[in-house]
Design a binder for these strands. Structure first.
Lengths: 140, 140
DNA sequence: CTTTTTTTGCAACAATTTTGAAAAAGTCAT
DNA sequence: ATGACTTTTTCAAAATTGTTGCAAAAAAAG
């Protein structure tokens, strides 16, 4: 099982209270979060600047990855266990529900290889799918 | 041929100097631009606020579309001739070169249909491919 | 050329993100 | 555990980014 402590030490990060809180939030929520959302969830218990720097550190060390958003607000989500500062494996897509606004990683959806014109070297692919999620679409 | 004047009147927009300048920029550059980039390119000849409003108007009328970026700064690119305020056709992908930083629309690349888990209703799909473009990758 | 409507620019504001430096907390070797 | 050392957090301040209201300017229509 992936404990907060475990993940931090695995990525050569100190076990500080803020990092543990932020990381636990990602583990609990299982959705992509933006800085303002994290700040709100943590009940303003720590400084805004600290969250910015924590996210930057997590990004750098491969604990989280960026999730695109159509509103400009950058979001972040937990990486798989296999990710590190050097290696990233992110071929899954992100689904944003236009109704409830949450974004989640969909590992199940396979993204077929895309053929690019000659000369383009593909390094990373980000897919943002938008529509209604099961929670919001089922009731209608 | 698509002239600036033409495009504006086609979308029921007045032919003002700022709109013509901004639109001309998109036609010349053929890459996705952000508000700060536009402001800089226009040599601060017009107000920041005007650019924001111009982009908002263009978006609304279907002249340009949003292009996702991994840096949080929203970018915009010209729509196809067929787009209008009502109808949008955007199944192409965007390629951002990690070397030169430019983002361009790749109309040629076909995005295969993606199978989502049950319950997810897909409405829109945004694909951001990153890597090196022909201009930057060829020399290495 | 005059009237009407829309757009632009300015000023002020609000929100978001970044930077520098001192205080606080974590780590490690005694 | 204690102290020395390193990293992280916090606070204050600034730089960026995006919004709003209103008067002046510009475009379209007659």
């Amino acid at each position: 099982m992936r404990t907060v402590h475990h993940i931090l030490t695995d990525h050569q990060l100190r076990n500080t209270s803020v990092r543990k809180e932020v990381l636990q939030l990602f583990l609990n929520k299982e959705i992509a979060l933006s800085q303002p959302e994290i700040e709100h969830e943590l009940d303003d218990s720590c400084d805004r600047v600290t969250i910015y720097r924590t996210l930057a550190t997590f990004l750098e060390k491969g604990v989280i990855h960026k999730v695109l958003d159509d509103q400009g607000a950058m979001k972040y989500a937990l990486c798989a266990d296999t990710c590190s500062a050097e290696v990233h494996q992110h071929d899954h897509l992100h689904f944003k529900c236009t109704h409830c606004g949450t974004t989640q990683c969909i590992e199940e959806a396979i993204i077929p290889p895309i053929q690019l014109p000659a000369g383009f070297q593909l390094a990373e692919l980000n897919v943002l799918a938008q529509g209604t999620c099961p929670d919001c679409g089922g009731g209608k």
